[in-house]
Amino acid sequence: MARNVIGGDLETCGTDPLTGFYRNGCCDTGGEDMGVHTVCARVTAEFLDFSREQGNDLSTPRPEFGFAGLVPGDRWCLCASRWVEALREGVAPPVVLEATHARTLEWVDLDDLRSHAVT
């Protein structure tokens, strides 16, 4: 069983929309996941705008990929590096610690994650 950033079992991030690199609802990762989609975030409008500006439009529906587009409040497994970029720009979305994979700690300090934790 995968572990989360606070040492417990990795919990489900979101199933509506279905998230995760493996589209299993969890921010699990493996060798094929070059983007390291390990941060379970509750996306905000500010983050979605930021991501679009960085070239990753997460809010526009892409039916050809079975993707309805995200809206503020959706839970989504973000790339650890993108979350760090958003943190530096002051638009990091809140995170669900129990559903954020422990591998995230290779990129992000636990104190930064805790300061953005969903309560």
Rank of each mutant, 00 (worst) to 15 (best):
A2R: 09
N4W: 00
E11F: 05
T12Q: 12
C13F: 05
C13G: 03
C13E: 05
G14S: 12
D16S: 15
P17N: 02
L18S: 02
T19P: 03
G20I: 02
R23Q: 12
R23C: 09
R23S: 10
N24H: 06
G25I: 00
T29Q: 15
G30K: 08
G30M: 09
G31T: 13
D33I: 11
M34K: 15
H37Q: 14
H37S: 13
H37E: 15
T38H: 05
C40R: 00
C40Q: 02
R42D: 08
R42Y: 07
V43A: 03
T44N: 07
A45L: 11
E46F: 09
F47R: 00
F47N: 00
D49T: 14
D49W: 07
S51V: 09
E53C: 09
Q54K: 14
N56V: 12
L58T: 07
T60R: 14
P63R: 04
F67L: 14
F67N: 12
A68H: 04
V71D: 10
P72C: 02
G73F: 06
W76G: 03
C79A: 14
A80V: 01
S81P: 06
R82C: 04
V84S: 08
E85L: 11
L87I: 09
G90W: 10
A92S: 10
V96W: 11
V96P: 04
L97R: 08
E98A: 15
E98W: 08
A99N: 04
A102M: 10
A102C: 08
E106D: 12
W107M: 08
W107A: 10
D111P: 03
L113Y: 01
L113P: 01
R114H: 08
H116E: 08
